[in-house]
Design a protein around this nucleic acid. Structure first.
Lengths: 193, 193
DNA sequence: GCAGGATATTAACCTCGGTTAATTAACTAT
DNA sequence: ATAGTTAATTAACCGAGGTTAATATCCTGC
């Protein structure tokens, strides 16, 4: 039993009744990879079809607009999927930069392998829709916040939702995640305190 | 073969190889329902656990903020799912108003039934993840637009993406969908032309 | 401990979109 | 057709957040 057996997978095992032998098969196709702080998992154009599960560390997913500005889509910490999920589903090259914000480790699982597993044991299909549904619900929440909340309110939500990550993320990246500039976030903080 | 056999289901039949007998079983549990213009499919608090597929007509999904303002989440036309998808997945009461913008018809399929089918033939699980993945991709696109584009740019995208619906939706609802006021949209239109 | 770079704060000014309210245009129904 | 309602436009004013730039603070490596 190697390092590969993460909490992440045990969680699924309980939840979806993945039998022992399926886990062992899966382990065969997993590979581990390390990233130093600042290194990229993908950049736009990369053909990266892997669901990278974060074992340790923290990643930032962002794109760069025409004017060269960065837009942080989300952060992914331990137990979460750092790969370019939407692009993998759409079977297109990455549109996002995915950067390690700390020294990090991921477990790589090619989506192709994952799909093949789904043709075998049912449990993998279950995991597949659970994963998608969870991602959807998350995005709908974000839509709600972007549509309806002020930047200050979004910041408060962020503090609650990502409390475990707050002190690992510099303020200017938080600002970008909220859809505002670092200057604006600084102003908000001043008012709150 | 009743009205129930819609294009929508035939589409899935081709795509995911749903066998004839599974369709027939499904048809048993489908019910059809009509809505007059202005009638509600759900309002917040309703326990509505049905994937309502639109056969004919157009629905508007929106919530109302604390200050009483409406926020249009999305529109659902023929072939799309009008039910409160996120809430169904989360197994919570509806948080949204879902209003028929025209005289409409939907095909009701309780999520419970749908899940039961998934325990039978595999194809239903496939449809389940396809549905979730499609919804996710859609929302990620919306996130991108809300984060990165100006209201004018979002309007242009809207014209392209929902070209088939544009002339069926009053301008002030489009504005709400874009996250701006009718006044602001009117100003944008003036500039463009 | 110090130098250089990365983050954060603050101020001055600008722009986009919100708010209110008045006006006009477009639909409905009788 | 006409009145009444609903939708869209326009104008005047305001405020949140963007932009630029200067300053201050915090890191990090040597």
């Amino acid at each position: 039993m190697g390092v590969k057996y993460t909490e992440f997978f045990k969680m699924y095992s309980d939840k979806f009744g993945v039998p022992e032998e399926e886990w062992l098969k899966l382990e065969e196709v997993l590979t581990e990879k390390s990233f130093k702080k600042g290194e990229l998992l993908t950049r736009p154009g990369d053909n990266f079809m892997q669901l990278a599960v974060v074992i340790k560390g923290l990643f930032r997913l962002f794109y760069i607009g025409q004017e060269g500005r960065e837009y942080v889509k989300t952060f992914r910490g331990e137990g979460e999927i750092a790969g370019p999920y939407a692009e993998i589903l759409l079977d297109i090259p990455s549109r996002t930069f995915i950067e390690a914000m700390e020294d990090s480790q991921v477990l790589l699982l090619s989506f192709e392998d994952f799909v093949k597993f789904g043709e075998g044991h049912q449990c993998w299909k279950t995991i597949r829709y659970e994963m998608a549904e969870e991602h959807f619900v998350q995005k709908e929440k974000r839509e709600f916040e972007l549509l309806q909340l002020s930047a200050a309110e979004r910041y408060n939500n962020f503090l609650v939702e990502k409390s475990h990550l707050v002190d690992r993320i510099p303020q200017y990246h938080v600002a970008s995640y909220l859809g505002i500039t670092p200057v604006a976030l600084s102003r908000i903080l001043k008012k709150i305190k």
